[in-house]
Design a protein around this nucleic acid. Sequence first.
DNA 1: AATCTTATTTATAACGATTCTAAAGAACTG
DNA 2: CAGTTCTTTAGAATCGTTATAAATAAGATT
Lengths: 132, 132
Amino acid sequence: MKYIEKLRNSGLRPTKQRLQICEVLFNNKETFHFTINNLAKKIKKSLNAKISLATVYNTVHAFEKKGYLKKISINTDQTFFDTNTTDHHHFYDLNEEKLIDIKNSDVGPIKILKKIEGKKIKSVEVLVKLED
Amino acid sequence: MKYIEKLRNSGLRPTKQRLQICEVLFNNKETFHFTINNLAKKIKKSLNAKISLATVYNTVHAFEKKGYLKKISINTDQTFFDTNTTDHHHFYDLNEEKLIDIKNSDVGPIKILKKIEGKKIKSVEVLVKLED
DNA sequence: AATCTTATTTATAACGATTCTAAAGAACTG
DNA sequence: CAGTTCTTTAGAATCGTTATAAATAAGATT
Ligand SMILES: [Mn+2]
Ligand SMILES: [Mn+2]
Ligand SMILES: [Zn+2]
Ligand SMILES: [Zn+2]
């Protein structure tokens, strides 16, 4: 399996559940955005496996910590994750409640002229809210 | 009182509780960011009034709907509100878990080159995460 | 001012996403 | 295999938020 080594290299044991979640998350042509509930349902369908919700949370958080997933800053009740871990920005469609990627190159260079003493910039994220 | 008319003009009855919350929120030189819990505590101290948590939620949401407060998109467990309702951006200090305003003029013009058919841009928000 | 009507407040219950717990099971090590 | 550590799991707990429904207050009508 192609994910076994990836997991081992991260110090994560390649369990059946983790490998299955890897398939759902990473075995796609396109990256995508998801919520935990969202993902749990997808797992149920894609595979006919029953992975406990706790394990889905554990795994997503583990993958996030290892940098295989990115948390997205949106103000909704549910947390969104992104399998696209490159630097990029987002549209948030307020009507459909969906995220859409914006490539860095589709946003002009962002200059932050204000500096905060003793602090470094870790990331710069643009969120563009859309309505009909 | 200076908030009575503001509330009436919005179709909100100027109740004792709303006027007190107005004092705490808007009777300041500087705008600020807050969470609901945060605000509830502030009310308890500032005034020696006991406003029920439900009323604080109701009022903040009413004020948000009227445009007197802005919800901020951050990925934390609690929702942040902003008494600064002008268009602006934010630093989020990951260590102190605090928001800091960035004036629009402190960010270069942001060009979104990608368009989504049938959708209008409602807002463009930049979130700059800071670390030590 | 008394009455009617509608909006608001409030305590409390309900909800739902997330986290915790602790026991059972699986993966690694020698 | 035996020992150790990690992982999974169901269910409970947590906690921010929302819903409920009865009491109260505000505005309108007489
Ligand atoms: Mn929560
Ligand atoms: Mn919630
Ligand atoms: Zn994305
Ligand atoms: Zn602000």
